[in-house]
Each structure stands twice: as structure tokens, then as C-alpha cells.
Design a protein around this nucleic acid. Structure first.
Length: 882
RNA sequence: GGGCGGAUAGCUCAGUUGGGAGAGCACCGGCCUUACAAGCCGGGGGUCACAGGUUCAAGCCCUGUUCCGCCUACCA
């Protein structure tokens, strides 16, 4: 017998170990079964499992387990990415604790230290995914720095370079002074900050008058090489002066005219700092201005900043403002909100910085990627995200791929010391391709981590080799991901996949929402509102957690997570456990065969409901409607199977009926439980495997059990046809009696007699066939079925499907209470009826609405009228007696 | 500035060809009924944000408004 309550921890450990040992997650390189594949969004190797991972991977696991049950050859490709900046930061912090740093160590030793770190801590997140139940094919786990994937990276780089799609150049990029590297525009998080707008006087060089400029970053003025005004600005039409004197630096700089300048902003005069602002850089190029770099890579002022040299950039701002003030140059300071970029890794304020970087020309690659989605070769789900995808792709900018760090794929480019020629090659070249000189220096930069992640769907499958795996599983079936990396990753995989494989990387992209805290705020360490998924798993069990995630994962809406919510689904898992516990007490063997002739109404009913539920769950999962699948299953298991079927089957199971009926009940119970377990397995893998293990006649692992086919229960499906309608009558009768009990405050222990009165012989037949069922479930002493209205006056009445149920309340009836109860019901009916007759009295409704709708309304009206009629009569009778 | 999403029961949310307003939790009342008190039975509760429009019919379609999120953008 099962324990009284479900205890997840030991069960989870046991089964995961077992699944892995039995190698059940392994995909076949080639197989007759249809292929289904997902590549995992590789978590950072430094990562720890957070709610986003938990949701993302739960969904993937649900799909993978479901597809395995459906008979697919499933590949869920796992792995991690090397997270260049993040990992380097982590290892550098560790070194700092040892009073060391990477420069002391040197590049080679540092890389060794990172690998060392990876071998010690790098599989933390993988182990956490296993606790979540993830059924990845771990035998194929990949890492973006693996030799194979590194070769893919080099191949892609060289090919793109040869095609002219990668170039190197001196540009303004986003620079993180803390990480000391360039970032792509995506790696910059913009945040509105309360800043100031400084209005500064720039005197004309000839001493007569001045221009006033406004800036939020006064320290950059030290690098100004011009002041710009709009060519058609009338205020400056008569301007004679050619140049101004840059305050504090006493440098003469020209006044130039450029239509970029907005006439509406401030005085219409713009200071130009080509080395520290992307727009100014463009202006500088147009006007051939010189660039003066006044902030270095560490965020400190260079010697070009004169007396401000060596100051930190923030300190410098204060000093510059002070100096401007005392020099009489500062006119005013106003408050101003403005967007400031922060490094997405370390949150430092980024500095636009002039430097030599490598770029991917994105436009050409983006075009086919746009087309693929437009033509529906790749579907983005929910569809609304495709707009975001198109917007970004259509306005795509070149992608800065070089990073000035050490941990990552080193750019395979060499510069000749003699002729400066650049050689890009797969292997270290022995000599310069131009002059043959042997002194070549390799580029020190590494590639953006996303560059290697962009190849993930094919590099993990062995590309550039043409492997069997690629033939079987590329394009992958679906990519499951959060919208936060739609640009970073999805878009780039699309570009790279199409370019190098000649085919889209995935047929579907399912974009899911974010997990937030219970108040709808983004979880973050600084807010202290982070809920650790492993905490939840420890407290409530993995299955409860997964079910919660699935149940709340409605498309397009963020999930608010709290422990209380998981608790609700823990109850559900426990309910399932106890339903199984009960069932197993009565099942001695497997019951593959159902003898249809012996099935009772509840048997037939639950089988009909099971069939429908399984179909609904299937349909929902095929459409990525996880919440719908989860709640359909939940509703069925708890409120149909447990609440009704199990209760209804008890007399048979306890041997109070003839053997044939008892056996039919057991066959049904076994079948329904069997299929429930399979149906729930994708959502709750552990508890279902555990119960499966204990279920007589259940073979092997549930993981491979095969999804129930809709036709499997009975040969003659028509046996199930009327079951639902007939059962409604029985359930309605029971509910009606229970309602009388509840409403009239009759103790559950009080014994009651009831009469089922109907003019319809079919109804009387069903009622008398299942008399015992009604007696049992409504806790009656007896039920009389009759076609004559009984004479007793001391009863409470309810109407169900046109039949009248009278509950004998001799001595206990409270007439006023019964009047209230009936009145309430009549009022409700009257309300509904006015709505209906309004429709039916409307000629345009009758002539315009489809016939079946009109018929439905009419039918309903008749039913309600009849019911109201009967209740009114009853009400009058009770009134006359009180 | 541009774009997207949201507003439905006290709370969190479902509601896909426009025709029945629903679930879970919370709440109220009653139950240790031999699978489950992590449970069972019964009950109350909604002008579907606001204003118009289309339609025989609108939570759902259209227009506008308000409030709240998020993404995106080089006006210093």
C-alpha cells in the first residue's frame, strides 16, 4: 500500500537516477520513428537555476516527454554557454580574493584557471536542471567552448570574413570601463536617470559675444573639437564668428553647420565630441574633425584632458562644473531626465568609446531571416511577437562581435608585423598572405558569446561535419525561449542557421512570458524578492512546482509566482497520490480488457470523459497551450474522477454488487488511472512514475508507455454515447438532494427518504437502475421512483432535468426556510427567462440568427419555463401549509 | 517619440471561429463518511476599466479616453 501522503524527495532522487542509468533520454541518431528535437537555450556556465530557467525548461520537458509518449524519436540537446564576460568576472573575483589578478597571471594561465573553475563549478546548473526533471539527452551535452563548437565558430568567422560580411574598423562602441570591453548595442540596458542639463558659455574667438551650448555630460567638453549649429537656423543667419574658444582648455574650435542639430533644443548650438558620442562621431566624420580621446578604457581622464587628467570620469564632471562656475562660464543648470546606458553584466554606466572593433554586416543576413518568418517557414508563437521580430530585423545595425576579454573564442586573424596585412584563417598561418613575412601577431580580442550561441542549433549537432544527427534533427521542431533574448539569440540563430545550413533552424519559436514575484515585480537580487526554484522544489516537490508553472503559463501573460500558489498544486499531486492509493487497494492485477457489456453508467461516463479529456490535453499541447492542458487534466482528475467516479464505484469495489459489475468497475478504475498517469506524466513526471511502478499490469517505465489512443477503451464506441447525458440526471439528482441538505441545515447524519417523480419513462428507468447510487451518494435511506406525484406535504423539492425530487422532511421541515430556498430559485429562473423571451420576441433575432441558435434558445426557454412552473406550484403549496 | 500587452468575483487569472460569465485561492455554513482534514458536502459573490460604434446578438470586432506594465529610440 502507498504511504498516506506523497513524499516527493526520495521518489524524485530515485527515479531521476534510474532514468539516467537506463539511458532513457537518449535520442537515436537515425530511427524509423518521426523526429522531434529541441535545443536547450544554453544557460550560462556560471548560472544558477532561476525562475526563468525553471519555466523555460519545464515547458521543454513537457513537450519532450509528451512527444516521447506519442512515439517520437526525441532529441533534447542540452548544454551551457561560456558566457565570456560573466565567467571572466567570476574568475577574476576569485583571483582577487587570492590577491591575484589576470594580468599577473598572464593570458594562458588565466584561461587555464577558467577551465579549472568550470570543471569545479560549471555543472551546478546542469544538476539543478536534473532536479527539475529535465529529460535532456545528457550524453550529448555540449559547451560553446568545446573543440567541436569552437571549430564551428572559426569556420563561420572565416567564411563570413571571406564573403565580406565581417569587417574591422574604428568606430564608437559602447564600452564598459569596468569590464574593459566593448559591448554590442543589445548588451546595454537603458535606464532613465534624473540628471542635469548644463548650459555653458562658449565665447567667440574674436571676443565679441558667445554661443551657449547645453549638455548633460559637461566633462566631455574637454574633448570638444567643434560647435555645431543648424545651417538654416535664422538666429545664426548673421553669425560672423568662425570659431569659439573652448573654456577650460583655451582651445580654438570651429563653428560648423550640420543639419543633425535640432533647432528646437536649447539654443540650437551643439558641442561636438567625436571621440565620446556616436552622433558627434558621425558629425566629425562629415566635417573631418579631429577626435580627442579624453577618457581612457578604465573610465579615467587621459592626458588630453589637461589639468583634469587621471581623474575618474565622475569626479571629473564635478571638477569641470566647479571650474566652469568659477570661470563664469556656467549659465544655469536645469534638471533633466535622460536615458543612460548600463552594462548588462555589471551595471556600470557605459562610455561611448572610440576603438578598433570587428563587426558583422547584419543587413544581408537579416533579409532571408525576415523572409522565413513572413512565409511561415518559421512560426513565432504567440504570433504577436513576430512584429517585434520584424521591427528589429528591419532596422538591424551591424553587430559588434569583438570583446576585449580573454575568455572566449579568440578571433582567428593575424596582422603582419612587416606589411600590416590582415590574414584571417582557420589555422594559425605560417606566413603573411601578402608579403610572406613570418612575424604574425594574432588578434587579442575574443568573440561575443552570442556569436557562438548563434550557431547552437547546428554546431551542437556536429557541424561543420555533415552528421547523421543533423540530417535527422535539423531543423529543430521548436525553440522555447523567453522574449528577453529574442534579439540576442533567436534572431541571430535565424540568420546564421539560414546562411550556413541553407535552412531555418526551427519550425516553431514558442515565446513564453517572464516569471515575476507575487506583486508582479521583476525578481532581482537587489529587490530581495527572488524566489529560489530549488527552495520551492525542496518544500513542495518538483511535480507540484512544474504543475504550477504549467497551469499559470497562459500565452502572453507574465506569471506571478508565490509559494502559496505552489501549495495549491501540491494538494493536487497529493490528491492524485491518494486516488492511486485507494485504487491500488482494489486492483490486484492489470485489466487491459474491458468487458463493455458489464459496464455501469458511471463506468461508461468516466470512460467517455477520459476520452474527451485526453483529446483536449493533446490539442492544447500541440498548440503550446500549457495552462489549458494542465487545467483540463486537473479538473478531470479531481472533480470528475475523484469526486464522482471513485465515490460512485465504491459499492462495486467493496463487493456490494454482483461480481461482473465489480469486475467492470475494476477494469474501468484501472484503465482510467492508467491513462491519467500517462496524461499527467509530462507535467508531473516523478509521482506518475512512482505510482506506475506500483500499478499492477503496468509494464516498464511510464516515460515510454505510449500516449493513450482515443479508441482504446471499448470496441464499440457507441456504448459511451449517451453516458454523459444519463449521468447528468443522476448527478443532478444527487446534487439537488445535497443542496437541500446544505441549504436547510440538515445534519449529514440525519437519514432522509426521497421520491423521484417523472412522467418520462426513460428517466424513471435510469433512476431506478441507479437508485442505489443516488441513495449512497446523497446519503438517503431510500429512494422511491414513481410516475405519480406523492401525497406527502412535508417535503422539500428540487427539479432536475424535468424530473421532480422530493425529500421527505417529516418533523424537520422548516417551512420558511424552504420558501426562501424556492423563492431564490424562482427569482433566478425569472431573470434568465426575461433575457430569453426578449430574444425570442425580437423579430430580427428570429430572422437573422442561425436556425440552430434560435432552436437552442427556444429549447432552453421551454426547459426553464417547465422548471419554473413546477417550482412555483411547489412554492404555493408550501406557502399554503405554513 | 514609436511599438506591444494588460484592465473580468475580495485576490490571481482562464475565456481563439461574437450566441451559456468561469476556475483556483480567499470567504460563509456543515462534516474525523474506512484514499485523502494536503480532505469531503453545501453556499454567497461580477454594470467583464470608461465612452461611443458595428451587429438580431459584444467580455470577445471597430474608434476614442483613462490607468498600469514591458520593449524600443542618437535630440545633446
Amino acid at each position: 500500500m502507498l504511504d498516506k501522503g506523497y513524499e516527493p524527495h526520495e521518489v524524485e532522487r530515485k527515479w531521476y537516477t534510474c532514468w539516467e542509468k537506463q539511458d532513457l533520454f537518449r535520442a537515436k541518431d537515425k530511427d524509423e520513428r518521426p523526429a522531434f528535437s529541441i535545443v536547450i537555450p544554453p544557460p550560462n556556465v556560471t548560472g544558477v537555476l532561476h525562475m526563468g530557467h525553471a519555466l523555460n525548461n519545464t515547458m521543454q520537458d513537457i513537450l519532450c516527454r509528451y512527444k516521447r509518449l506519442k512515439g517520437f524519436n526525441v532529441l533534447w540537446m542540452p548544454g551551457t554557454d561560456h558566457a565570456g564576460i560573466a565567467t571572466q568576472n567570476v574568475v577574476e573575483r576569485k583571483l582577487a580574493q587570492e590577491d591575484n589578478d589576470r594580468h599577473q597571471l598572464g593570458r594562458e594561465k588565466f584561461i587555464e584557471a577558467v577551465w579549472q573553475w568550470r570543471s569545479e563549478y560549471g555543472d551546478a546548473i546542469i544538476n539543478q536542471l536534473k532536479r527539475l526533471g529535465a529529460s535532456c539527452d545528457w550524453s550529448r551535452e555540449r559547451f560553446t567552448m568545446d573543440e567541436g563548437l569552437s571549430e564551428a565558430v572559426r569556420t563561420v568567422f572565416v567564411k563570413l570574413y571571406e564573403k565580406g560580411l565581417i569587417y574591422r574598423g574604428l568606430y564608437i562602441t559602447n564600452w564598459c570601463p569596468r569590464c574593459r570591453t566593448a559591448l554590442s548595442e543589445l548588451e546595454v540596458e537603458h535606464e532613465e536617470i534624473d540628471g542635469h542639463l548644463y548650459h555653458i558659455r562658449y565665447p567667440f574667438a574674436d571676443g565679441k559675444g558667445e554661443l551657449v551650448i547645453a549638455t548633460t555630460r559637461p566633462e566631455t567638453m574637454l574633448g570638444d573639437t567643434a560647435v555645431a549649429i543648424h545651417p538654416e537656423d535664422e538666429r545664426y543667419a548673421d553669425l560672423k564668428a568662425q570659431s569659439v574658444i573652448l573654456p577650460l582648455m583655451d582651445r580654438k574650435i570651429p563653428i560648423i553647420k550640420d543639419s543633425y542639430v535640432s533647432r528646437e533644443f536649447g539654443t540650437g548650438a551643439l558641442k561636438v565630441t567625436p571621440a565620446h558620442d556616436p552622433n558627434d562621431f558621425e558629425i566629425g566624420k562629415r566635417h573631418k574633425l579631429s577626435s580627442i580621446k579624453i577618457i581612457n578604457d578604465a573610465g579615467c581622464m587621459t592626458p588630453e584632458a589637461g589639468r583634469f587628467a587621471k581623474l575618474d570620469r565622475f569626479e571629473c564632471r564635478e571638477q569641470v562644473v566647479k571650474a566652469l562656475k568659477s570661470g563664469g562660464y556656467l549659465i544655469k543648470v536645469t534638471n533633466r531626465k535622460h536615458g543612460v546606458g548600463h552594462c548588462y553584466r555589471c551595471k556600470s554606466i557605459v562610455e561611448p568609446n572610440l576603438s578598433q572593433q570587428w563587426f558583422v554586416k547584419a543587413k544581408a543576413l537579416a533579409e532571408p531571416a525576415i523572409k522565413a518568418v513572413k512565409e511561415g517557414k518559421t512560426r513565432i508563437i504567440p504570433e504577436s511577437w513576430s512584429k517585434t521580430y520584424f521591427d528589429w530585423m528591419n532596422n538591424i545595425r551591424d553587430w559588434c562581435i569583438s570583446r576585449q576579454i580573454w575568455w572566449g573564442h579568440r578571433i582567428p586573424a593575424w596582422t603582419c608585423e612587416s606589411c600590416q596585412e590582415l590574414t584571417v584563417a582557420m589555422q594559425t598561418p605560417s606566413q603573411c598572405s601578402a608579403c610572406g613575412h613570418k612575424m604574425l601577431i594574432q588578434e587579442t580580442d575574443v568573440l561575443d558569446t552570442w556569436f557562438s550561441s548563434a550557431l547552437w542549433p547546428f554546431s551542437t549537432m556536429g557541424w561543420p561535419e555533415q552528421t547523421e544527427l543533423l540530417r535527422t534533427f535539423y531543423p529543430t521542431s521548436v525553440l522555447v525561449t523567453g522574449f528577453d533574448i529574442l534579439f540576442f539569440w533567436v534572431a541571430r540563430m535565424m540568420m546564421m542557421g539560414i546562411h550556413f545550413m541553407g535552412e531555418i533552424p526551427f519550425k516553431d519559436v514558442y515565446v513564453h512570458a517572464l516569471v515575476r514575484d507575487e506583486h508582479g515585480h521583476k525578481m532581482s537580487k537587489s529587490k530581495g524578492n527572488v524566489i529560489d526554484p530549488l527552495d520551492i522544489i525542496d518544500t513542495y516537490g518538483t511535480d507540484a512546482f512544474r504543475y504550477t508553472l504549467a497551469a499559470f503559463a497562459a500565452q502572453g501573460r507574465d506569471i506571478k509566482m508565490s509559494k502559496d500558489r505552489v501549495d495549491g498544486y501540491r494538494h493536487f499531486i497529493n490528491k492524485l497520490w491518494n486516488a492511486a492509493r485507494f485504487s491500488l487497494m482494489h486492483l490486484e492485477t492489470g485489466y487491459e480488457k474491458i468487458e463493455a457489456g458489464n459496464l455501469s453508467l458511471p463506468d461508461r461516463w468516466i470512460l467517455a470523459r477520459l476520452k474527451k479529456t485526453i483529446q483536449k490535453v493533446e490539442t492544447a499541447l500541440e498548440q503550446y497551450r500549457f495552462n489549458e492542458a494542465a487545467s483540463e487534466a486537473y479538473q478531470f482528475v479531481w472533480h470528475e474522477f475523484c469526486d464522482w467516479y471513485v465515490e460512485a464505484a465504491k459499492p462495486a469495489l467493496y463487493g456490494k454488487t454482483e461480481a461482473a459489475a465489480a469486475n467492470a468497475a475494476k477494469q474501468t478504475l484501472w484503465t482510467v488511472l492508467h491513462d491519467i498517469l500517462i496524461m499527467l506524466h509530462p507535467f508531473a513526471p516523478f509521482v506518475t512514475e512512482e505510482i506506475w511502478d506500483k500499478l499492477p499490469g503496468a509494464e516498464g517505465f511510464i516515460l515510454n508507455a505510449g500516449f493513450p489512443a482515443p479508441q482504446r477503451y471499448v470496441d464499440d464506441q457507441s456504448i459511451l454515447d449517451n453516458a454523459e447525458k444519463q449521468m447528468e440526471l443522476i448527478m443532478g439528482a444527487i446534487a439537488g438532494i445535497r443542496n437541500i441538505r446544505g441549504e436547510m441545515n440538515i445534519a449529514p447524519s440525519a437519514t432522509l427518504e426521497a421520491v423521484f417523480f417523472s412522467a418520462n419513462s426513460e428517466q424513471r428507468r435510469i433512476a431506478s437502475d441507479y437508485q442505489d447510487l443516488i441513495v449512497n451518494m446523497a446519503r438517503l435511506t431510500s429512494l422511491t421512483v414513481t410516475d405519480k406525484i406523492p401525497a406527502s406535504k412535508t417535503n422539500a423539492t428540487t427539479i432536475v432535468s424535468g424530473a421532480t425530487l422530493l425529500v421527505e422532511l417529516k418533523g424537520v421541515i422548516d417551512f420558511q426556510c424552504e420558501i426562501n430556498r424556492l423563492e431564490k430559485e424562482v427569482i433566478k429562473l425569472t431573470k434568465e427567462l426575461t433575457g430569453l423571451s426578449k430574444k425570442l420576441n425580437n423579430d430580427s433575432f428570429l430572422s437573422n440568427a442561425p436556425a440552430n441558435i434560435v432552436e437552442n434558445v427556444r429549447e432552453k426557454q421551454n426547459k426553464l419555463l417547465e422548471k419554473k412552473d413546477k417550482l412555483t406550484t411547489t412554492l404555493e403549496r408550501v406557502r399554503s401549509m405554513s
